[in-house]
Design a protein around this nucleic acid. Structure first.
Lengths: 224, 224
DNA sequence: ACGTCCTTGTGAAGAGATGCACAAAGTCAC
DNA sequence: GTGACTTTGTGCATCTCTTCACAAGGACGT
């Protein structure tokens, strides 16, 4: 897994995955005027143990003050620095189906430092259409977009064209991909892929749901 | 974390999370006529190590044949059995914004045994509107839906109403929740929550992207 | 029927993440 | 200044997940 490589000598991947949660919680505290916060309170707000919070934060450096806690603003700044939120990341969304359109219209990205700079689709019929203030363009525009700074590509196509789109993204120079298509992507070393699969999440829930209905399956069989 | 509880004495959570991937790969192999598959090939198709595949599958039982491999159809059946895909799971989506509408229109759920039975929103103005063949209903209909078998709730509301919706789901008797709102939900024991956060995923990508641009930050500082 | 070959299933080792518990280090009241 | 108090940062034990490596088991050709 190419993600693990970049964690080598760096911050553990599990910690990185929690940093956005801490950051969100901190922003919340800052909004309601809290200026200082203990690891215990931050843990409560994010649903983890306080020791884990402290260990995670210590990966970034020693930004806490013993006996007091962490300065909310300063810690938020340090985390956003680590996450690269200090500058804007241009993002392109490929695939203008239902999901692609929803992502294009989603307001939550802008505040996190992501700017959707292009909407692409392989279907010519969509080219030129206006969605969320942007004109849909062909995927052949990708090299041009990378020259303009594009770094992150979001794949919101059906499964069967996802690998093709992925190849085009990689060829154009994109090295970070968020994949919503229900398929595994093959990419060269150095390219990081994260996958979000709605069906998978529901299937995991279904597994647990099923467990609740008939918990002691083995025992029941043994009883027969 | 309530999810870990159900993993106690059962299949490890990490394994459960990989089962849908195996199942998807198996369906693909079945479609192209492959009847038998080795752990090595299944590993290649899903991007994991073969030993991991074998250990994961051995959690379900001994369905492989030494020297030969696994029967594709039988293994797919066993996994779908473990995941509870043998019967349909009624799903309700709460929050008919962009994302909620996209989810309502998503065709991928049906083939995985999920049936979207209701679309709900707290905004009265939307009630009665038709989306993807379903009429939008008020969240107060939840108890009724649970009586009709509703088991899984999807939260696609803005962050500020997510906890309220979550409480209503739980009160109505829903014990499995998929949360797309960028906020932590507090639920009683026995309720399983999975969270999908689009911004978080992008932030993790941005972290890795940043690493690539300026790998040896500390060394640069030391040099100064 | 026998031996060769192949792949599973799994103990054991290794790597990684989590949780505990406490010394270290700072604040604050007086 | 001093001491009581609070909370961090972290070494260590524990737990979980992964990887290795190989014996056990079964198919298949001869």
């Amino acid at each position: 897994m190419s993600i693990d490589q970049s964690a080598r000598r760096g911050i553990p991947e599990v910690t990185v995955a929690r940093l956005p949660e801490y950051l969100r919680a901190l922003r919340g505290f800052a909004e309601q005027g809290t200026t200082s916060i203990s690891s215990e309170d931050l843990a409560a707000a994010t649903g983890v143990r306080s020791a884990k919070v402290r260990k995670d934060l210590s990966q970034l450096g020693s930004y806490g003050v013993r006996g007091v806690g962490y300065d909310v603003d300063h810690l938020a700044y340090q985390i956003s620095l680590a996450l690269g939120q200090t500058h804007d990341w241009p993002v392109a969304i490929v695939g203008m189906g239902n999901l692609g359109r929803a992502l294009a219209a989603y307001r939550g990205f802008a505040t996190k430092g992501f700017r959707i700079v292009a909407l692409l689709d392989q279907n010519e019929l969509l080219h030129g259409e206006r969605i969320a203030g942007l004109v849909v363009r062909p995927v052949t525009d990708l090299p041009e977009l990378v020259l303009e700074g594009l770094a992150i590509g979001v794949i919101a196509t059906p499964a069967d064209s996802a690998q093709d789109v992925s190849d085009r993204l990689v060829d154009a120079g994109v090295r970070s991909i968020l994949n919503f298509a229900p398929t595994m992507l093959t990419v060269p070393d150095g390219v990081v892929v994260r996958k979000v699969d709605l069906s998978t999440e529901l299937q995991i829930l279904a597994f647990h749901e099923q467990r609740k209905v008939e918990p002691p399956t083995h025992l029941q069989e043994a009883r027969a």
